[in-house]
Protein backbone atom coordinates (compact mmCIF):
# COMPACT_ATOMS: atom_id res chain seq x y z
CA UNK A 1 0.00 0.00 0.00
CA UNK A 2 2.85 2.33 0.90
CA UNK A 3 4.46 2.24 -2.49
CA UNK A 4 1.46 2.81 -4.71
CA UNK A 5 0.72 5.84 -6.83
CA UNK A 6 -2.95 5.99 -7.52
CA UNK A 7 -4.80 8.38 -9.80
CA UNK A 8 -8.61 8.54 -9.67
CA UNK A 9 -10.73 10.46 -12.19
CA UNK A 10 -8.25 13.31 -12.49
CA UNK A 11 -9.28 16.36 -14.49
CA UNK A 12 -7.45 19.62 -15.11
CA UNK A 13 -8.43 22.51 -17.33
CA UNK A 14 -6.15 25.38 -18.35
CA UNK A 15 -8.40 28.04 -19.82
CA UNK A 16 -10.13 26.51 -22.83
CA UNK A 17 -7.88 23.42 -22.96
CA UNK A 18 -8.77 20.29 -21.10
CA UNK A 19 -5.27 19.09 -20.24
CA UNK A 20 -6.30 15.97 -18.34
CA UNK A 21 -9.73 14.38 -18.33
CA UNK A 22 -11.15 11.49 -16.30
CA UNK A 23 -7.74 9.90 -15.93
CA UNK A 24 -7.36 6.88 -13.66
CA UNK A 25 -4.47 4.49 -13.29
CA UNK A 26 -2.26 2.91 -10.66
CA UNK A 27 1.49 2.47 -10.49
CA UNK A 28 2.18 -0.57 -8.34
CA UNK A 29 5.19 -1.57 -6.27
CA UNK A 30 7.77 -3.76 -7.92
CA UNK A 31 6.90 -2.52 -11.39
CA UNK A 32 8.17 0.06 -13.80
CA UNK A 33 5.05 1.71 -15.12
CA UNK A 34 5.54 3.52 -18.39
CA UNK A 35 3.44 6.65 -18.77
CA UNK A 36 3.32 7.30 -22.46
CA UNK A 37 1.66 9.79 -24.71
CA UNK A 38 2.49 12.31 -27.41
CA UNK A 39 3.82 15.73 -26.44
CA UNK A 40 1.06 17.77 -24.87
CA UNK A 41 -0.96 14.72 -23.87
CA UNK A 42 -1.05 15.81 -20.21
CA UNK A 43 1.72 13.64 -18.74
CA UNK A 44 3.60 16.37 -16.92
CA UNK A 45 0.37 17.95 -15.72
CA UNK A 46 -0.65 14.61 -14.24
CA UNK A 47 2.68 14.19 -12.49
CA UNK A 48 2.40 17.71 -11.03
CA UNK A 49 -1.08 16.94 -9.76
CA UNK A 50 0.18 13.74 -8.12
CA UNK A 51 2.73 15.88 -6.25
CA UNK A 52 0.16 18.43 -5.18
CA UNK A 53 1.83 21.18 -7.19
CA UNK A 54 -1.15 21.75 -9.45
CA UNK A 55 -4.64 21.51 -8.06
CA UNK A 56 -6.92 19.12 -9.98
CA UNK A 57 -10.36 20.39 -10.99
CA UNK A 58 -11.78 16.98 -10.20
CA UNK A 59 -10.56 13.61 -8.97
CA UNK A 60 -7.69 12.81 -6.69
CA UNK A 61 -4.16 11.49 -6.67
CA UNK A 62 -2.92 9.39 -3.78
CA UNK A 63 0.61 8.43 -2.81
CA UNK A 64 0.60 5.41 -0.52
CA UNK A 65 -3.09 6.03 -0.02
CA UNK A 66 -2.79 9.69 0.98
CA UNK A 67 -2.83 13.00 -0.88
CA UNK A 68 0.73 14.27 -1.35
CA UNK A 69 0.05 17.60 0.33
CA UNK A 70 -0.99 15.85 3.53
CA UNK A 71 2.32 14.00 3.85
CA UNK A 72 4.61 15.21 6.63
CA UNK A 73 7.90 13.97 5.21
CA UNK A 74 6.91 13.62 1.55
CA UNK A 75 10.43 13.03 0.24
CA UNK A 76 10.39 9.70 2.09
CA UNK A 77 7.14 8.73 0.34
CA UNK A 78 7.63 9.82 -3.22
CA UNK A 79 10.76 10.93 -5.02
CA UNK A 80 10.37 12.76 -8.27
CA UNK A 81 12.38 14.25 -11.06
CA UNK A 82 10.04 16.50 -12.97
CA UNK A 83 12.59 18.65 -14.70
CA UNK A 84 16.31 17.94 -14.62
CA UNK A 85 17.13 21.54 -15.49
CA UNK A 86 15.31 22.86 -12.42
CA UNK A 87 18.52 23.80 -10.60
CA UNK A 88 19.92 27.25 -9.90
CA UNK A 89 22.95 27.40 -12.21
CA UNK A 90 25.10 29.26 -9.69
CA UNK A 91 24.60 26.67 -6.98
CA UNK A 92 26.95 23.72 -6.52
CA UNK A 93 25.37 20.31 -6.98
CA UNK A 94 26.09 19.31 -3.39
CA UNK A 95 24.52 22.52 -2.07
CA UNK A 96 21.42 21.88 -4.16
CA UNK A 97 21.03 18.49 -2.51
CA UNK A 98 21.83 19.99 0.90
CA UNK A 99 19.03 22.52 0.91
CA UNK A 100 16.66 19.90 -0.40
CA UNK A 101 17.65 17.52 2.40
CA UNK A 102 17.07 20.29 4.97
CA UNK A 103 13.71 21.20 3.46
CA UNK A 104 12.63 17.59 3.48
CA UNK A 105 13.82 17.09 7.05
CA UNK A 106 16.27 14.40 5.96
CA UNK A 107 19.55 13.51 7.67
CA UNK A 108 22.61 15.22 6.22
CA UNK A 109 24.41 11.96 5.36
CA UNK A 110 21.84 11.21 2.65
CA UNK A 111 23.42 13.90 0.48
CA UNK A 112 26.71 12.03 0.21
CA UNK A 113 24.89 8.71 -0.17
CA UNK A 114 22.88 9.78 -3.21
CA UNK A 115 25.91 11.51 -4.73
CA UNK A 116 27.71 8.19 -4.48
CA UNK A 117 24.70 6.29 -5.78
CA UNK A 118 24.33 8.40 -8.91
CA UNK A 119 28.03 8.62 -9.68
CA UNK A 120 28.20 12.38 -9.12
CA UNK A 121 31.09 12.31 -6.64
CA UNK A 122 33.55 14.06 -8.93
CA UNK A 123 31.06 16.71 -10.04
CA UNK A 124 29.31 17.44 -6.74
CA UNK A 125 31.53 20.42 -5.99
CA UNK A 126 30.85 22.10 -9.33
CA UNK A 127 28.19 24.64 -10.12
CA UNK A 128 25.14 23.10 -11.76
CA UNK A 129 25.15 25.72 -14.53
CA UNK A 130 28.13 23.99 -16.12
CA UNK A 131 26.58 20.54 -16.07
CA UNK A 132 25.91 18.51 -19.19
CA UNK A 133 22.40 17.22 -19.73
CA UNK A 134 23.47 13.77 -18.56
CA UNK A 135 24.89 15.13 -15.31
CA UNK A 136 21.77 17.18 -14.71
CA UNK A 137 19.71 14.03 -15.09
CA UNK A 138 21.92 12.31 -12.55
CA UNK A 139 21.53 15.26 -10.18
CA UNK A 140 17.77 15.15 -10.66
CA UNK A 141 17.73 11.44 -9.91
CA UNK A 142 19.95 11.98 -6.87
CA UNK A 143 17.40 14.52 -5.62
CA UNK A 144 14.57 12.06 -6.19
CA UNK A 145 16.39 9.38 -4.22
CA UNK A 146 17.26 11.63 -1.24
CA UNK A 147 14.41 10.34 0.93
CA UNK A 148 14.93 6.74 -0.20
CA UNK A 149 11.24 6.69 -1.14
CA UNK A 150 9.16 3.61 -1.98
CA UNK A 151 7.58 5.40 -4.95
CA UNK A 152 9.40 7.28 -7.69
CA UNK A 153 8.38 9.39 -10.65
CA UNK A 154 10.57 10.47 -13.53
CA UNK A 155 9.41 12.81 -16.26
CA UNK A 156 11.18 12.05 -19.52
CA UNK A 157 14.34 10.79 -17.80
CA UNK A 158 16.15 9.63 -20.92
CA UNK A 159 15.14 12.54 -23.14
CA UNK A 160 18.25 13.73 -24.95
CA UNK A 161 20.63 11.29 -23.31
CA UNK A 162 23.36 9.38 -25.10
CA UNK A 163 22.99 5.57 -25.40
CA UNK A 164 25.26 5.02 -22.41
CA UNK A 165 23.08 7.27 -20.26
CA UNK A 166 19.92 5.58 -21.48
CA UNK A 167 21.31 2.17 -20.56
CA UNK A 168 22.31 3.44 -17.11
CA UNK A 169 18.89 4.89 -16.39
CA UNK A 170 17.11 1.78 -17.61
CA UNK A 171 19.21 -0.39 -15.37
CA UNK A 172 18.62 1.95 -12.45
CA UNK A 173 14.84 1.97 -12.95
CA UNK A 174 14.78 -1.81 -13.16
CA UNK A 175 16.81 -2.24 -10.01
CA UNK A 176 14.67 0.32 -8.13
CA UNK A 177 11.54 -1.61 -9.10
CA UNK A 178 13.20 -4.89 -8.18
CA UNK A 179 13.63 -3.56 -4.64
CA UNK A 180 9.86 -3.33 -4.42
CA UNK A 181 9.42 0.32 -5.35
CA UNK A 182 6.74 1.68 -7.61
CA UNK A 183 8.42 3.47 -10.51
CA UNK A 184 6.43 5.70 -12.83
CA UNK A 185 8.32 6.85 -15.93
CA UNK A 186 6.88 9.18 -18.50
CA UNK A 187 7.99 9.38 -22.09
CA UNK A 188 6.69 10.56 -25.41
CA UNK A 189 8.62 7.86 -27.24
CA UNK A 190 7.54 4.29 -26.72
CA UNK A 191 10.89 3.05 -27.99
CA UNK A 192 12.54 4.58 -24.92
CA UNK A 193 10.52 2.28 -22.72
CA UNK A 194 10.91 -0.85 -24.78
CA UNK A 195 12.41 -3.50 -22.58
CA UNK A 196 12.25 -1.15 -19.60
CA UNK A 197 8.62 -1.08 -18.54
CA UNK A 198 6.40 -3.81 -17.14
CA UNK A 199 3.20 -1.96 -17.54
CA UNK A 200 2.05 0.84 -19.80
CA UNK A 201 -0.37 3.67 -19.24
CA UNK A 202 -0.98 5.33 -22.57
CA UNK A 203 -2.70 8.72 -22.74
CA UNK A 204 -3.60 11.07 -25.53
CA UNK A 205 -5.26 14.47 -25.28
CA UNK A 206 -5.50 14.03 -21.54
CA UNK A 207 -7.51 10.82 -21.71
CA UNK A 208 -6.56 7.25 -20.93
CA UNK A 209 -6.09 5.21 -24.07
CA UNK A 210 -4.67 2.02 -22.66
CA UNK A 211 -3.66 0.67 -19.27
CA UNK A 212 -2.10 -2.67 -19.93
CA UNK A 213 0.93 -4.89 -19.58
CA UNK A 214 3.52 -4.67 -22.31
CA UNK A 215 2.83 -8.27 -23.38
CA UNK A 216 -0.92 -7.70 -23.74
CA UNK A 217 -0.37 -4.54 -25.69
CA UNK A 218 1.88 -6.26 -28.21
CA UNK A 219 -0.56 -9.12 -28.48
CA UNK A 220 -3.39 -6.72 -29.21
CA UNK A 221 -1.39 -4.72 -31.69
CA UNK A 222 -0.28 -7.85 -33.54
CA UNK A 223 -3.98 -8.66 -33.82
CA UNK A 224 -3.38 -12.35 -34.70
CA UNK A 225 -2.01 -11.40 -38.08
CA UNK A 226 0.15 -13.75 -40.07
CA UNK A 227 2.76 -12.83 -42.63
CA UNK A 228 2.98 -15.03 -45.64
CA UNK A 229 5.82 -15.12 -48.14
CA UNK A 230 4.91 -16.52 -51.52
CA UNK A 231 5.84 -16.10 -55.14
CA UNK A 232 2.23 -16.78 -56.17
CA UNK A 233 0.73 -13.82 -54.41
CA UNK A 234 -2.45 -13.51 -56.47
CA UNK A 235 -3.40 -17.14 -56.07
CA UNK A 236 -2.70 -17.15 -52.36
CA UNK A 237 -4.84 -14.06 -51.83
CA UNK A 238 -7.75 -15.60 -53.74
CA UNK A 239 -7.62 -18.85 -51.78
CA UNK A 240 -7.38 -17.20 -48.38
CA UNK A 241 -10.03 -14.58 -49.12
CA UNK A 242 -12.39 -17.34 -50.11
CA UNK A 243 -11.77 -18.93 -46.71
CA UNK A 244 -12.93 -15.71 -45.01
CA UNK A 245 -9.59 -14.05 -44.19
CA UNK A 246 -8.73 -10.40 -44.70
CA UNK A 247 -5.74 -10.36 -46.96
CA UNK A 248 -3.60 -7.35 -47.80
CA UNK A 249 -0.59 -7.17 -50.06
CA UNK A 250 2.46 -6.22 -48.05
CA UNK A 251 4.95 -5.85 -50.87
CA UNK A 252 6.15 -8.07 -53.73
CA UNK A 253 5.95 -11.67 -52.62
CA UNK A 254 4.45 -10.91 -49.23
CA UNK A 255 0.89 -10.69 -47.88
CA UNK A 256 -0.53 -10.07 -44.44
CA UNK A 257 -3.38 -12.31 -43.41
CA UNK A 258 -5.80 -11.51 -40.65
CA UNK A 259 -8.63 -13.69 -39.35
CA UNK A 260 -7.07 -17.09 -39.86
CA UNK A 261 -4.59 -18.92 -37.64
CA UNK A 262 -1.28 -19.95 -39.21
CA UNK A 263 -2.02 -23.69 -39.18
CA UNK A 264 -5.24 -23.14 -41.13
CA UNK A 265 -3.42 -21.00 -43.68
CA UNK A 266 -0.77 -23.67 -44.22
CA UNK A 267 -3.44 -26.34 -44.63
CA UNK A 268 -5.43 -24.26 -47.13
CA UNK A 269 -2.44 -23.31 -49.27
CA UNK A 270 -1.08 -26.84 -49.28
CA UNK A 271 -4.52 -28.16 -50.23
CA UNK A 272 -4.82 -25.75 -53.15
CA UNK A 273 -1.26 -26.33 -54.25
CA UNK A 274 -0.09 -22.74 -53.78
CA UNK A 275 3.62 -22.60 -53.17
CA UNK A 276 4.89 -20.46 -50.27
CA UNK A 277 8.27 -19.92 -48.75
CA UNK A 278 7.33 -18.85 -45.22
CA UNK A 279 4.55 -18.29 -42.71
CA UNK A 280 5.20 -16.30 -39.57
CA UNK A 281 3.19 -14.74 -36.79
CA UNK A 282 3.37 -10.95 -37.08
CA UNK A 283 5.14 -9.32 -34.11
CA UNK A 284 4.25 -5.67 -33.79
CA UNK A 285 6.93 -3.47 -32.31
CA UNK A 286 6.01 -1.44 -29.25
CA UNK A 287 6.35 1.69 -31.34
CA UNK A 288 3.93 0.34 -33.91
CA UNK A 289 1.43 -0.62 -31.24
CA UNK A 290 1.70 2.83 -29.77
CA UNK A 291 1.27 4.57 -33.12
CA UNK A 292 -1.82 2.50 -33.64
CA UNK A 293 -3.22 3.54 -30.28
CA UNK A 294 -2.44 7.22 -30.45
CA UNK A 295 -3.25 7.83 -34.10
CA UNK A 296 -6.34 9.83 -33.19
CA UNK A 297 -4.86 11.39 -30.15
CA UNK A 298 -1.87 13.22 -31.56
CA UNK A 299 -2.31 16.78 -30.53
CA UNK A 300 -0.39 18.57 -33.20
CA UNK A 301 -0.98 17.57 -36.79
CA UNK A 302 0.59 19.07 -39.85
CA UNK A 303 -2.44 20.98 -41.01
CA UNK A 304 -0.68 24.08 -42.25
CA UNK A 305 -0.45 22.79 -45.81
CA UNK A 306 -4.18 22.35 -46.04
CA UNK A 307 -4.87 25.93 -45.12
CA UNK A 308 -2.60 27.35 -47.81
CA UNK A 309 -4.25 28.17 -51.16
Amino acid sequence: MDATIEVRGLRKRYGPTLAVDALSFTARPGQVTGFVGPNGAGKSTTLRMIMGLDRPDAGSALVGGRPYRSLRTPLCRLGAMLDASAVHPARRARDHLRWLAHAGGLPRRRVEEVIELTGLASAAGRRAGGFSLGMRQRLGIAAALLGDPPALMFDEPVNGLDPEGITWIRGLLRSLAAEGRAVLVSSHLMSELEGGADRLVVIGRGRLIADTSVADLLEAASGGRVELRTAERQEAMTVLARAGATVTAAGPGAVTVAGLPAERIIALLTGEGVAFSGVSEHRASLEEAYMELTRDAVEFRAVAGREAP
Binding site: M1, D2, A3, T4, R28, P29, G30, Q31, T73, L75, C76, R77, G104, G105, L106, P107, R110, L146, G147, D148, P149, P150, E179, G180, R181
Partner: peptide, 14 residues
Protein backbone atom coordinates in the same frame (compact mmCIF):
# COMPACT_ATOMS: atom_id res chain seq x y z
CA UNK B 1 2.29 -8.50 -5.97
CA UNK B 2 5.74 -7.51 -4.84
CA UNK B 3 6.35 -6.47 -1.26
CA UNK B 4 6.39 -2.74 -0.90
CA UNK B 5 9.71 -1.05 -0.33
CA UNK B 6 10.10 0.85 2.93
CA UNK B 7 12.18 4.01 3.09
CA UNK B 8 15.27 3.53 5.22
CA UNK B 9 15.33 7.26 6.00
CA UNK B 10 11.72 7.66 7.05
CA UNK B 11 12.40 6.97 10.72
CA UNK B 12 15.06 9.69 10.88
CA UNK B 13 13.17 12.29 8.91
CA UNK B 14 12.04 15.32 10.92
Amino acid sequence: AATSYRSTVQAEAR
